[in-house]
């Protein structure tokens, strides 16, 4: 059986590295390092709040196999 799991994708070419997502992340999984955004996949719970509020649409929770 194929296990489907979710993961947060950061579209670097869309991201404006503003940090809005970092402020709403309930788990503290996002980090703005200088001019790029990182996600700690261990901490991220794929709740999608960051993706919902991103001003530019740079974040997406995707199903991965």
């Amino acid at each position: 059986m194929i296990k489907v799991f979710k993961m947060l994708i950061i579209k670097r070419e869309v991201c404006g590295y503003c940090g809005a997502c970092v402020s709403v992340c309930p788990e503290g999984a996002l980090e703005l390092v200088d001019a790029y955004l990182t996600v700690d996949p261990e901490t991220c719970i794929e709740c999608g709040i960051c993706s919902r509020i991103c001003p530019l649409g740079a974040l997406e929770v995707k199903n991965a196999e």
Partner: peptide, 26 residues
């Protein structure tokens, strides 16, 4: 450290902004 407010979070203070209370801006 501004809107991200990570440092206080590392010190155990919950700085999470509720989704309805972040103004998302361009």
């Amino acid at each position: 450290d501004g809107v991200e407010s990570k440092f206080a979070r590392w010190c155990g203070i919950d700085t999470t902004v509720p989704m309805a209370e972040i103004e998302t801006c361009v």
